[in-house]
């Protein structure tokens, strides 16, 4: 093989290796961008203040534009009645979102590293790197993830990281009429969230505490019957198809 051919092949090899490494560098770069703020974001949701108006659901949808029928946050509504007929039923509104766990089960199983935890604790997805295998969706014990029908990649709540970086509150927090949702730095003992957690220490609960995920979304005023999977009656559920057509069934 003559010298020019060898040089050409050598250059091609460097270009190929370089091209293959670009996305790796991108993933690492994205992680580096949010390094070392010393913060650990978490959210407290005071159920005593939630009226189930779904303003957070709507605000999140306006802010993050998930496809029709898919949500990063919702407020689930339950009727709770006692065995005796004398007590009237009560209603529980349960806002749900990604728990940005301390030990997120969605991250280690990701085969490409597209989902990762920022130094400030927020779990995010690099949707330019995600292959859409859905493994993280299966692994999340909270059904907080979904495959976005438009991007065909994993999608989830990001605590509106883009707004936090701009000094704004997440859309759901900002719009909450009852101020039920409070976000803040769990590492700062003087932050509003830390104060709230301290003041309501006896009444703080997380979802699925036995799953060892270490959720960083805390609930005040939640009955322990709601900590784990609901043992109750399901409603008539509906699903929206990609075209917006509603399909439903009864139980």
């Amino acid at each position: 093989m003559d010298k020019s051919k060898r040089q050409f092949l050598g250059k091609m090899a460097s270009v190929s290796v370089g091209a293959a490494l670009i996305p790796v560098v991108q993933v690492q770069a994205q992680q580096a961008q949010t390094a070392a703020t010393g913060k650990r974001y978490g959210m407290v949701i005071d159920l005593r203040r939630c009226v189930g108006c779904q303003a957070c659901t709507v605000a999140c949808t306006f802010e993050n534009l998930p496809p029709l029928g898919q949500f990063r946050t919702t407020v689930q509504q339950y009727e709770v009645s006692q065995q005796d007929a004398a007590t009237p039923p009560a209603f529980l509104m349960l806002p749900r979102l990604c728990n940005h766990c301390e030990n997120p089960p969605c991250i280690p199983i990701c085969p490409t590293g597209a989902t990762f935890q920022r130094p400030d604790g927020i779990v995010v997805v690099n949707n330019e790197w995600c292959v859409g295998c859905g493994y993280c969706v299966q692994a999340c014990p909270y059904d907080a993830r979904f495959i976005n029908h438009e991007t065909n990649t994993a999608d989830k709540c990001t605590f509106c990281a883009h707004r936090l970086e701009a000094g704004l509150l997440p859309a759901c927090v900002e719009t909450c009429v009852g101020e039920a949702r409070v976000i803040g730095d769990l590492n700062d003992p003087h932050s509003h969230i830390s104060q709230l957690l301290k003041a309501n220490q006896a009444d703080i609960k997380v979802l699925k505490p036995d799953a060892n995920t270490g959720p960083r979304v805390f609930y005040i005023g939640m009955n322990s019957a709601f900590e784990d999977r609901i043992n109750g009656q399901a409603p008539v559920r509906t699903l929206l198809t990609d075209t917006g057509e509603e399909i439903h069934h009864g139980h």
């Binding site: 689930q76 339950y78 709770v80 009645s81 009656q233």
Partner: peptide
């Protein structure tokens, strides 16, 4: 205690 779900989303399957 009897719990009835009133308003909850239906989660679509991910692995087809």
């Amino acid at each position: 205690m009897v719990i009835k779900e009133i308003f909850t989303p239906d989660i679509a399957i991910t692995w087809l």
